[in-house]
Amino acid sequence: MKPLLPVGEIAKGVLAGDRRSVAKAITIIENNASKAQELIASIYPHTGKAHIIGITGPPGSGKSTLIGKIIREYRRKGKTVGVIAVDPTSPFTGGAFLGDRIRMQELSTDQGVFIRSMATRNYLGGIARATKGAVKVLDAAGKDTVIVETVGAGQSEVEIIKIGQTIVVVCAPGLGDEIQAIKAGIMEIGDIFVVNKADREDANKAVMDIQAMLQLNNKEKKWRPTVLKTTALTGEGVSQLIEKIEEHKLFLEQELERNTSRGKAESELAEAIKEKVANSIIEELKSEGKFEEFLQKILEKKMDPASVAEKLLNEKFRKQVQKCQN
């Protein structure tokens, strides 16, 4: 059996920008909760330098191709780039097909680029549980820019705002229904909107549709989201997109001392507490055998999951209150 390197070694490798260490670190974050925590703890002081871009949008909008072009443009400017491309895990088999990188594959041998595909492993909201940690790894490894591509299943993929600093929402003309999906789910989170495949005749209409929606939505925001056109296939409009991203980055930096970074830290802390608490309760219930007991009830359709959760929590907290009183 070949033992994996100790976490400390891997963390050291990450900080030195060693590619294999980066890859191993992300695997640890995906697979091994306790080691993941140790790893993140040791790289955390070295994070916060990368600019993190979230890219989301409905299927068929050309996100991956666009990301390929964005990477190229950053590389031309001498910046290094990391990418996390998320695809869904099948709820039935637990397997996943990860094919986003094909659009970026010719960049895979560029030592200034690191691309990692990631399956959601049934985490909801368009990213994976490990995405956040993986971004930190790429950040700590010295990538100037880290791009996260969400699943792009056309559902509300809003988790990305917890990770990304600049959120780019991509859509394409002729996807009619999908514009509705954007309206319903991800309109609020976009800092920059991109109408890709702009060489199509109905591109301008899509731009106007989005602009109209934005006017309704963003009256009181300090950053006014804009709508840009790109043709990812030829790269047209990509340098303007980068300029806009950079502009937004500058805006964020100016806002830095104010709420933005604090807000992010706040939500990160809240998330971390939530996850810890929830998991420890679940573990406890499992060890008590309660979890299995009620799981059976759900399977037999005697109770629904929400009621079970409520009942269990009530019991648990009553117990704890009692403990305190004793």
Binding site: G95, I102, T109
Partner: peptide, 28 residues
């Protein structure tokens, strides 16, 4: 393999040896 529960990375056609091995490395 996907249906057997694995995470399958597929890179498409015509990959050079360099691209294949570099992808394997990054994807661990």
């Amino acid at each position: 393999l996907r249906d057997a529960g694995m995470e399958v990375i597929y890179t498409g056609l015509r990959q050079t040896p360099e691209q294949i091995v570099e992808t394997a490395l990054q994807e661990d």
